[in-house]
Amino acid sequence: MTTLSGAFFGVIHRDLSIAMRHRGDLLNPLFFFLIVVTLVPLGISPEPARLAAMAPGMIWISALLATLLALDNLFQADFADGSLVQMMLSPQPLWLLVLAKIIAHWLVSGLPVVLFAPLLGLMLSLPQAGFLPLLLGLVLGTAVFSLIGAVGAALTVALHKGSVLLSLVVMPLYVPVLIFGSSAVQRAVDGMSYGGVLAILAAVSAFTLLVAPFAAAGALKVGING
């Protein structure tokens, strides 16, 4: 029988190698992120001052939408080919395997969004001071997006019209992260300290990390039987 850590890292390794073989799927959310941000100056105004005022919120909202878009294939493919059911039947605790899947998913969908964000900050003329809190906040924030999103993805995995429903279910739960994340950037731009806000965001993500894998595992059991 495989050890706990063996199973955990095995799932991460497997998911990462599958993702590497479908590189196109990895890039799509990033292009989505880029295009949404490009629409902002086109839709509102290319004037740097106005863009800078909106940049923290716009980047965060687009990052939220991009990670939301990627959530669909967290469990979907594994459910379709039956390997998800095998994971549920395995002797290892399901929440651990789910956590492994979430981590792998964040590495291929959340992390690229984080790394891409400074470029979009430049495009929206975000002031210098905002870049560091944007990066730090997005690291914590996208992790929460993936964790909470996993619960929604697990609930809707067996429904074939899952995508819109998934967004509807998950988005209200993203509100606190969006508020703290974008205001950390805003505070930094305004020359105030942002450490406290990031600390709250970190607390939210630590709490979510504790709770979400269990909720997602429970949701998978319900979702698949449906």
């Binding site: 609930l155 739960l173 449906g226």
Partner: peptide, 29 residues
């Protein structure tokens, strides 16, 4: 919006039992 999410989820399952279980998880979260 939270209510709407739960109602939308409850309408999309084919059996009432599963739908209630799924909504319960979402409501608790």
């Amino acid at each position: 919006f939270l209510y709407i999410g739960i109602i939308a989820l409850s309408r999309s399952f084919s059996t009432r039992e599963t739908s209630a279980r799924a909504c319960a998880i979402l409501a608790l979260v």
